[in-house]
Design a protein around this nucleic acid. Structure first.
Lengths: 189, 189
DNA sequence: CAACAAAACTAACGATTGTTAGTTTGATAC
DNA sequence: GTATCAAACTAACAATCGTTAGTTTTGTTG
């Protein structure tokens, strides 16, 4: 059907470089070299370096927002909702691990409008997450440890998947989901 | 004799800026402004921007290495060793949360010698961690989930403490250790 | 007060940055 | 074969980068 547009190729190549050295340390000449062209040629396809970054990040953030909204509005137990969140992160990570590096590490280099938009999505995401955990504690589905620590530790792990997953070979998404749910929710001891 | 040396003040100010925007995006002029002086004046106290980064990161990495060695050589159960590792991360984080941002996000901007040195320390640290978990599984102290997932998820959480801890107000280190051990080892459900 | 060192300053350097303007190339359509 | 258009190119720009050189200010000590 549609093959990948030249712009998307550039964005994908940029995501890989941004993952390795961060947005600020990657020059347009670096990116051009990775694409096998000259820096000026990039501007036939993109408007600015900044546009590349926002394309990567905003798209991913909207994916998470959309996924979280489905989960919040579903009629499931808190535990099942947490399991679905774990699944959401794994799905997104398998699809675009490179881009997640920018989302995690370079979001602060977005400029004004996109920065505010991103920060709102992230805040809403965390609030939704927190509410699910709180409800789970109220319903006695979740041990009443410190709610903030549960939110923080679970989210830390899920956000770091993009670093860990590529180092695992031939790992099946469904097995990964099962194991991750087991470790994050049932614990280690 | 010694208050904080001027160099240490510069390093500390740099750590804060590096945490906010990353090493590459912080200019020597940014750092000078934060110190209330001109950029050229910084060079009366430090040799290069790179020296600032390596001062921040290597010192912290050596702290972790030293702490891990003590734990590895201690005669404790695997669970107790894991608890001590959690304690180590909390202690280091409370002492220097800003510097940990650089260690986590900007280590790849170290140059050759320090980069290799750092990478070796990090590899050894992870190997030690993995061995402790493996031993725990063998001794039936730890549920035999996927060992790699346990190592990854625990380490992800501990490495991200630097972001989370400053947002908590008046949290006691010992209570934090207890809660963190509970969530990471005993689980949530 | 004179002497000295620490730490600030001004001015500038060569290199590199993101980006623009104008031009050439190469494939497809008529 | 010629027109078209996307996509590459060369050349250069103003701005900013880390850093150096040389000078002045500041504070302490005899």
């Amino acid at each position: 059907m549609k093959q990948e547009s030249r712009k998307q190729e550039i964005v994908n190549a940029a995501a890989i470089l941004f993952k390795e050295k961060g947005y600020s340390a990657v020059t347009m000449r670096d990116l051009a070299t990775a694409m096998g062209i000259k820096a000026a040629s990039l501007y036939n396809h993109i408007q600015s370096k900044q546009e590349i970054l926002s394309t990567i990040i905003i798209e991913l953030a909207e994916e998470f927002t959309q996924g979280m909204n489905l989960i919040v509005n579903s009629h499931r137990s808190s535990i099942q909702k947490l399991e679905n969140i774990i699944g959401l992160h794994i799905d997104v990570t398998l699809r675009n691990a490179d881009g997640l590096a920018s989302l995690n590490n370079d979001w602060m280099h977005l400029e004004e409008d996109n920065l505010l938009y991103f920060e709102k999505m992230r805040q809403d995401y965390e609030d939704n997450f927190r509410q699910i955990v709180k409800k789970g504690v109220e319903m006695n589905e979740i041990k009443s440890n410190n709610v903030e620590i549960i939110v923080f530790s679970t989210l830390s792990t899920l956000r770091t998947l993009y670093l860990w997953y590529p180092k695992q070979k031939n790992i099946d998404a469904n097995i990964l989901k099962k194991d991750m749910i087991s470790v994050l929710l049932q614990g280690v001891v």
